[in-house]
């Protein structure tokens, strides 16, 4: 094995030497060939083929299908479910991002003090990050469930009627945002803690000499110098929130009806439950465009802020 690999590398060396005598550097393309192949086969090719399928009426299993032009796109824009699902997806993305950053920054500011309970608190807050989002969804299901849920046990204790929070479309999207935030706030916290610890204490000492208040120091020193951490968190959280899938499956399964469906779960149902593969692919294209635009916009916006700061 080692022998053949060495020979192969010598071959490429002599080959590239022959090809470009003036340049000593070869690309060493054989070192990344396996990685390129696997990414092309499992991501790039299916992604591009998905765009092609979005112009068909394929049902997902038959051998034949027709190209029907833009019909699936017309259908998508006329479908009220599309807008419901896009609205939910944006709520999951933007809502989780706001909550995770506020809570994450708050926790980081608290734990940046030298408290005895610091590492214990940090461990507990971070713990859900390593648990499967599906399982985290089930764990919160035990809390919110209509029958036998821990929340309703409190209601019963005070003689109130139990509530069906997960079955109520006015409430359950917010529960999903909450659970997603609860699960990943630990990542935001750690990134902010690392950011806070990289800020030199000299700034605060200088500000103290000038008699700055706590809020002034936070606004004029902490936040500007924390901008790189804010960028990372915003972009990570928004991409994670827009792609949300597991937590929804565990908590509401998209219901009642399509009330809490995200684009991911909606696509999954179109393909597997309704055998509507062409339309599922069309929804996939819309999802890719939305995620691309929002994550690029977030990245550019916060990067610009970083430069200003």
């Amino acid at each position: 094995m080692a022998g053949t690999l060495t020979k192969a590398s010598e071959k490429t060396k002599t080959k590239s030497r022959k090809m470009k005598k003036s340049r000593r550097e070869s690309s060493l393309w054989w070192m990344y060939l396996p990685s390129v192949l696997i990414v092309v086969l499992f991501i790039i090719y299916p992604f591009l083929d998905g765009i092609r399928i979005s112009f068909t009426n394929w049902n997902g299993f038959s051998q034949t299908y027709d190209y029907i032009g833009l019909d699936q796109y017309k259908r998508m824009f006329a479908d009220p479910d599309t807008w419901l699902v896009v609205k939910n997806t944006l709520l999951y993305g933007i809502g989780s991002t706001i909550l995770q950053n506020i809570a994450g920054l708050g926790y980081a500011l608290l734990l940046n003090h030298n408290l005895k309970v610091r590492s214990f608190t940090r461990t507990i807050i971070y713990l859900p990050v390593i648990i499967s989002p599906l399982i985290m969804g089930y764990i919160w299901y035990f809390f919110f469930a209509f029958q036998g849920g821990a929340l309703n046990d409190i209601f019963l204790l005070f003689g109130k009627d139990p509530i069906n929070a997960l079955g109520n479309p006015a409430v359950n999207p917010y529960i999903i945002v909450f659970v997603n935030t609860f699960q990943f706030v630990g990542i935001a916290m750690i990134i902010y803690l690392a950011g806070l610890q990289s800020i030199s204490k000299d700034y605060y000492e200088a500000a103290n000499i000038d008699g700055a208040t706590g809020w002034q120091k936070f606004k004029n020193i902490t936040i500007p110098l924390l901008m790189p951490s804010i960028t990372i968190n915003m972009v990570l959280n928004i991409i994670g929130g827009l792609k949300l899938f597991d937590v929804i499956v565990a908590l509401t399964n998209g219901g009642p009806g399509n009330a809490s469906q995200s684009m991911s779960t909606f696509m999954y149902n179109l393909y597997f439950a309704r055998q509507d593969a062409g339309y599922a692919a069309t929804q996939g294209v819309l999802m890719a465009i939305i995620i691309l635009i929002i994550s690029m916009a977030a990245l550019l916006y916060f990067k610009r802020k970083e430069v200003e700061a």
Binding site: K243, M267, I291
Partner: peptide
């Protein structure tokens, strides 16, 4: 070549994996 390949890998990171689901399943 390597610059292009590197850009390809970085670009792929923004593709939501689920959007490739339908054709991937078929594949």
């Amino acid at each position: 070549l390597n610059k292009y390949v590197y850009m390809l890998f970085v670009g792929v990171m923004v593709i939501p994996p689920l959007t490739a689901l339908v054709p991937l399943y078929r594949l």
